[in-house]
Amino acid sequence: MYLLLAQITVAHYLVVGAVLFVTGVLCMATKRNAIGVLIGIELVLNGANLNFIAFGSKYLRHDTLGFDGQLIALFVIVLAAAEAAVALAIALNFYNNHTTIDVDKAEDLKG
């Protein structure tokens, strides 16, 4: 109830971003499916994006990043899309070569 009545601040966004980030990291750490790992990366990037947006939002603070925050977020989104395309291509190639998508099997270069 407190939350419902309180005014939202940057910190609120940061908490959500932190949750997204940690979830993404854990996703990367616990998924053996390459696409699962990729999904984890997307979550991490989104957590970061949320922080940028929050710091750039003029609803939340006086002293904001301004539009720089949004611009950086845009860049991140675009780069994430590119990264997803490449990573998926890698995953497909990996699948074609190993008939599996288990990242634990991707240890050809193991020391």
Binding site: A29, K31, D104, E107, G111
Partner: peptide, 9 residues
């Protein structure tokens, strides 16, 4: 090389 397990996770 022991460190390089090849495990992404």
């Amino acid at each position: 090389r022991v460190v390089q397990t090849g495990s992404l996770r």
